[in-house]
């Protein structure tokens, strides 16, 4: 599973860690995050993320 980086603030979503504070379990792929999920650091939507190279 790929990591995704937030283009607004630089936060990296790591599927291995998930985002437990937002109720996202470790092992959740970025693609499986709900459309309502936002960056935990800056609040940007999923459309502001891209695959981390």
């Amino acid at each position: 599973m790929k990591k995704y980086i937030c283009l607004v603030c630089g936060y990296v979503y790591d599927p291995a860690k998930g985002d437990p504070d937002s109720g996202v379990a470790p092992g959740t792929a970025f693609e499986s995050l709900p459309a309502s999920w936002v960056c935990p650091i800056c609040g940007a939507g999923k459309d502001q993320f891209k695959v981390e190279e």
């Binding site: 459309a35 309502s36 936002v38 609040g43 940007a44 939507g45 999923k46």
Partner: peptide, 9 residues
């Protein structure tokens, strides 16, 4: 304005 995704929710 920056938080339109959350606002809609």
């Amino acid at each position: 304005m920056p938080f339109r995704t959350s606002i809609k929710q």
